[in-house]
Every structure is written in structure tokens, then in C-alpha cells.
Write a protein that binds this DNA or RNA. Structure first.
Lengths: 203, 203
DNA sequence: CTCATTTACTTAACATCGTTAATCGTACTC
DNA sequence: GAGTACGATTAACGATGTTAAGTAAATGAG
């Protein structure tokens, strides 16, 4: 009886269709401008159907972001596998992270610039296998590589990684929300941020 | 005929009352959890009355944030007036900015972590007299002080200020939204960020 | 084949939101 | 005292996220 399997396959298919529709709307408009009804319209189902596949709107968009951040992890993996000078490699990773954030401003905003829903999720969030945390772990890995190569003093690696994260998150989120600010130049300020952070850590 | 003046005074008084009520709710709940109706309830007026004094919800909360950021400007002014070593003074300013952001997470989020409403505000925002920009100008001032004192190379000051802003904004916004993340310690990571940025710029 | 159960989905509705139009009442002007 | 300007209100619109109840078809057992 492959009937169970077929049904499961169909469910999975619709689930993905919802994710895709939500993602597309989400990319064009922001989180708050995407309504459940519009997503439902797009896939030509009733709005309540979505609630069979996802707990609520927050859950749905969390899954959407998860998909997107998985692509970031792929990109970072590729960079980290490349040989060469570790500090340069770390810098390339930072730049890639920043570019990713600017390419996917709505996803980035949803995952890192939204208040974490108060509740008991204190542990559910920030699990090691979540794409966000995987991306973060690249920082610590890149840093330890630098230390091993003697390019950096072996201070608190975790602290350094968090400092680095703060820095690149800062430039991403500012460029996203304050895009009418008279920046001295996007590329320039991105490069300056990365350079300043790394220089400050190597010392 | 002081009648016109009295009316104006009354208007101003109610306007301030609305601002205060909105601010108090705003501090406790987030932007999205404060409704016009609840603000109206608090001051015991009808919801539509608010629209006589403020264009819409965004306008009202913008004014609330303006008030709050004016306090930050005061604080920064006090710090910048103090004598002493300019790099240390700059650092104290950065710390004060970060502390302010963490003390007023909702106001900070509303002004710097929200998508700028698309429209023609491209110039209205980022006016030099807005408290946000005034606060930013402290960075350039602090940096030029350092350069004058020979503590820093005279590279592009504007670029350095924007880099600094990105960095401190990063740690503020991350600590606000990702407060369940296993930080190595709030104070530690704040200090590390400031130190790294300044060290990276002085080089 | 028949009947009961499960399953996927929809319709209807609730509470709440920001906001506008129409209206009311009163304090002012003349 | 009549007319007016203005502050505030009531009622309503359209839209939101979400839940409860209902429907119709596919599935399983006898």
C-alpha cells in the first residue's frame, strides 16, 4: 500500500508550494505587507489551509527564512573549503555574509531584526543546527584558522566571533533600513567595516 | 485677547499627554503591540482625537522617538564637553550610545531597525537637525578630536564615522533582538566591540 | 458492496487593527 | 442672540491573523 506515501508526497508538495508563494511575496514586500490571504490567493487555496501546514504566520515565514539561510551556509562552506591565507579567507566570508544580507533584506530583517517572540522558545531558538547558528559557527571556525596560522593572538575566540558578528550585522542592518542616509559609498563602508574589525582583532 | 493663546496651550497640553501615554505603552510593549485605541483609552479620549494632533500612527511614534533621542543628545553633549584624552572620550561616547540603545530598545528599534516608509521622504529623513543625525554627528566630532590630537591618522573621517556607527549599531541591535543568544557576556561583548573598532581605526 | 472513519479543505465568523467621513456640541465672534 | 469655527465623538470601512464548525471525498473494515 503505497497510498500513504503518495498522500505524504502530495502534502509535501503543497507545503512547498505554500513556502514558495510566501517566499516570493515576502521578497517583494516586507514581512508586514504579506498577508495570509494574499499567500492563499496566490496558490489558489483558502487562507485556512495554510494553518494545516504551518502553525501561524510567524512559523511560515520562519521556515521561509530557514530555506534562504541554508543557501548562505552553502555559500560559506564553499568559501571556507578554499585554500589560501586564512585571514583573507575570513574576510571573504565576512563579505559574502554581508552581500547575502543585502541581497535578501527581507529575510535578513525577519530573522535578525525582529523581536524574538516572547514565550518559552529560549532554547528552541539558537539551536546549533539552525542555519543562522551554522552561519555563525563559520566565524569561530574562520577565527580559529587564523589563530592556528599564528596570524592572530589566541584570546577568547567566542568573544571575538561575537564581536565580528556584531560588526557585520551592523553594517548590513543599517544599509537595509537607512538606505536613504548619505553613505560615503556602499562598497566603501562595507570594506571599511570588515577591514576595521579584522585589523582591530589582529592587533 | 489671550483666548487664542489659551487654546493653543490646551492643544499643546493634550498633545503632550498623547505623547506621554504613547511613550509609556510603547516602552512596555513593542511598536506593533501598541494600538491607537489603547493609547486613546489611556488618556480617556476617543481614538480619532489622536488624528487631530498627529498625522497617523507612524507620525505619532516618530515624535515619541524624537523626544527620547533628544535625551541621548543631551547625554552625549555632556560627555563631549568633558576634558581629557580624546580617544577615551570617544570611547565613553560610544558606550553611552550603546547603553542608551539598550535602555530604550523599543525606541531604538523603531528609529533604526524599521524599514524606512517608502515614499518621498528621501530628504525629510536624515535632516541634520533630527536627533538621530545629531547623535551621529557626535561621532565625526569625536573622531576629528582624535585626529587633531594626533591619536589617529587623518583618513576619511566620514567613512570612519560610518564604520563606527555600523559597529555600535550592530551590537545594540543584536543584543536587543537576539537576547536569548548565548552571549559571552553583555558587558564583555560591548567592551570588545568598542575596543576592536577603535583599535582598528587607530591602527 | 456498504458503511463508518479519517483526511483535506472551505465557509463563516470573531476580534482587532488603522483610518476616514459625517456629525455633534460648545465656546467663541460679531 | 445668531452664526461660525473648532475640538471631539460616533459610526463605519476594509483589512488583518486566527479559530470553530462544516463539507465532501478518499480510505479502510466488514
Amino acid at each position: 500500500m503505497g497510498v500513504k506515501e503518495r498522500r505524504a508526497r502530495q502534502k509535501k508538495y503543497l507545503r512547498q508550494e505554500i513556502l514558495d508563494a510566501a517566499s516570493e511575496l515576502f521578497v517583494r514586500e516586507g514581512y508586514e505587507n504579506v498577508s495570509m490571504r494574499r499567500i492563499a490567493d496566490k496558490i489558489e487555496y483558502s487562507p485556512t489551509t495554510i494553518y494545516i501546514y504551518f502553525k501561524d504566520k510567524a512559523d511560515l515565514l520562519e521556515q521561509v527564512c530557514k530555506e534562504t539561510f541554508a543557501r548562505l551556509v552553502q555559500r560559506l562552506t564553499k568559501i571556507m573549503e578554499q585554500p589560501g591565507e586564512p585571514v583573507e579567507r575570513l574576510k571573504r566570508g565576512l563579505i559574502a555574509y554581508i552581500e547575502f544580507g543585502l541581497e535578501n533584506p527581507h529575510h535578513y530583517r525577519a530573522t535578525f531584526m525582529m523581536p524574538i517572540p516572547d514565550g518559552l522558545d529560549h532554547e528552541k531558538y539558537h539551536q546549533a543546527d539552525s542555519p543562522g547558528m551554522q552561519a555563525f559557527s563559520f566565524l569561530t571556525r574562520g577565527l580559529t584558522d587564523c589563530i592556528k596560522a599564528g596570524k592572530m593572538h589566541a584570546t577568547n575566540v567566542e568573544l571575538a566571533a561575537q564581536t565580528l558578528w556584531a560588526g557585520i550585522h551592523g553594517i548590513i542592518s543599517l544599509l537595509i533600513t537607512q538606505n536613504t542616509f548619505p553613505w560615503v559609498g556602499r562598497e566603501k563602508v562595507i570594506h571599511s567595516t570588515v577591514h576595521t574589525l579584522v585589523a582591530g582583532l589582529v592587533r
